[in-house]
């Protein structure tokens, strides 16, 4: 506790010494910290790094974007850091709809209203896949089996994460029940299926493409995007099959609430221009991601609406 006391003393001294207003300079006047709430290597990290490199290459901002990885709590640790930072646009976060799920599950206090959306830089939808040796080729087969023998298939999920929610949305729509097992990440879920310890899981489309021959193989039965994609032309969407479940997980750029709107606009303009680059477009296509830009206000509105629906689901599965 001495530490806290000391901290507050020092903080007091700092306030007394130099709380002078900084002269207004053109934003950004120092490197912009982009918080990624995951260890390096995942999609959120990679997209952030690609866009940061593109912004620097094209000279879209006078200062570089520095990617800062703060893994922990599915992104919650990084989010906390952003909320604690000065809301001036020099600290932003690249996250996705786990923010909404964490809020709906009441893992974190913060929600979309604590952030200002800079925009969605495209996104991707997942596929639901079953183990190849089960002989279940279509979603219909799976649903029928589960209705005949409830709980006869093991679905590997991460409780309180996207696979849990998307699976629950579909189960609610189609009226079936699976047995659940917990795994922390996409590769952990693959491990469970490839090793025969589970039967069904949700994967990002690009993950599915890389892993479809692992172990006994994976069979994609339904895609949760609004439309079929070129990478998986034979996988029907849930909507096509008559289930109203669409999940598009965006690359969501956020700044803490209170960030000046003109700084948000500068960031959004730079990000959008980098995002529209042909190389980035090609990378998105290659990795089974959708390439679209949603401006901040619209992104915020869509997210708040989605949060309402997720909270209904959360009330049932918590």
């Amino acid at each position: 506790m001495n530490k806290l006391l000391l901290g507050s003393l020092l903080a007091g001294a700092a306030l007394a010494l130099g709380a002078m207003p900084a002269p207004a300079e053109a934003f950004p006047d120092k490197p912009i910290r982009v918080i990624v709430g995951f260890a390096p290597g995942g999609r959120t990290d990679t997209v952030a790094r690609l866009l940061a490199a593109k912004i620097e290459e094209k000279g879209l901002l006078p200062q570089p974007l520095v990617i800062v990885n703060m893994p922990g709590g599915g992104g919650a640790v990084g989010a906390q850091e952003v909320l604690d930072a000065e809301p001036d646009g020099h600290t932003i976060i690249h996250w996705h709809h786990q923010l909404l799920i964490a809020k709906a599950m009441e893992i974190i206090e913060a929600g979309p209203d604590d952030f200002t959306s800079i925009g969605f830089a495209g996104g991707g939808s997942p596929v639901w896949s079953v183990r190849g040796d089960l002989g279940l080729d279509t979603l219909d087969d799976v649903v029928q089996k589960l209705k005949a023998e409830p709980g006869s298939l093991v679905e590997v999920i991460g409780i309180g994460t996207i696979p849990h929610f998307v699976g629950a949305l579909l189960a609610k729509e189609a009226g079936f029940e699976t047995r659940k097992v917990q795994a922390a990440s996409g590769s952990d879920r693959l491990k469970m299926i490839a090793g025969g310890n589970a039967d069904i899981s949700l994967f990002a489309a690009s993950e599915y493409e890389g892993w479809k021959t692992a172990g006994q193989g994976l069979e994609a039965v339904v895609f949760f995007g609004p439309n079929r994609i070129d990478n998986l032309p034979d996988v029907p969407t849930a909507t096509e099959l008559g289930y109203d479940v669409v999940w598009a997980n965006p690359n969501w750029w956020l700044a803490p609430t209170g960030t000046p709107q003109e700084n948000i606009d500068i960031l959004a303009a730079a990000l959008e221009e980098a995002f529209q680059d042909e190389e980035i477009k090609a990378w998105f296509a290659e990795n089974a991601l959708d390439h679209y830009w949603t401006p901040g206000p619209q992104a915020h509105e869509e997210s708040v609406e989605l949060l309402g629906r997720l909270q209904e689901v959360a009330a049932e599965i918590r």
């Binding site: 530490k3 000391l6 901290g7 020092l10 903080a11 001294a13 700092a14």
Partner: peptide, 12 residues
């Protein structure tokens, strides 16, 4: 050490 880390943490 404590003062050192505190001075950086509090951006003094």
């Amino acid at each position: 050490l404590v003062l050192y880390v505190a001075s950086m943490d509090l951006r003094l």
